[in-house]
C-alpha cells in the first residue's frame, strides 16, 4: 500500500520550492522589535519545507529498500506448479492475473 511519506514529502518539496523561488524574486521585510528586517520569510521557510520534503521522501525510500532486502527470494523448483504458473504465455502477462482497478 501507498507509503504516506511519499505524498507528504512530494507535497512539501513542491510547495517549498514554490515559496523559496517566489520569495527570492519578491524582496520584502518583516517587522521585529528592533525594526524592519530585510528578509522575505518565504525564502527561509520555503527552503526549510523543501528540506523537510526531501528528508521525508528519503526516509520512505530507505525503508522501501530495506524491506526489499529483507524479503526472502522465493525458491522455485524447475518443473513445479508455481514455476509453470510464472512462465509467460502468449497474450498474458503479470497484469492479466492481477485485478483491474474496476474489479477492485
Amino acid at each position: 500500500m501507498l507509503d504516506v511519506r511519499y505524498p507528504i514529502g512530494f507535497l512539501f518539496l513542491i510547495l517549498g520550492a514554490l515559496l523559496a523561488i517566489y520569495g527570492y524574486g519578491h524582496p520584502a521585510t518583516f517587522n521585529t522589535v528592533n525594526g524592519p528586517f530585510p528578509l522575505n520569510i518565504d525564502v527561509p521557510w520555503g527552503i526549510f519545507m523543501f528540506l523537510f520534503g526531501m528528508g521525508t521522501v528519503s526516509l520512505a525510500k530507505l525503508d522501501e529498500v530495506k524491506n526489499a532486502e529483507q524479503e526472502p527470494v522465493p525458491q522455485i523448483e524447475s518443473g513445479s506448479e508455481a514455476a509453470d504458473a510464472m512462465k509467460p504465455e502468449a497474450g498474458s502477462g503479470p497484469q492479466a492475473t492481477e485485478p483491474t482497478e474496476e474489479e477492485s
Binding site: 500500500m1 501507498l2 505524498p7 515559496l19 482497478e101 477492485s104
Partner: peptide, 21 residues
Amino acid sequence: LVVVVYFVFVLGVGFKLKKNM
C-alpha cells in the same frame, strides 16, 4: 497556486488508495 497544489495531492491520495478498498 499553493491551494491548487494541495488540492491535487489530497485528491491524488484518495484515488491512489481506491484500489485497496
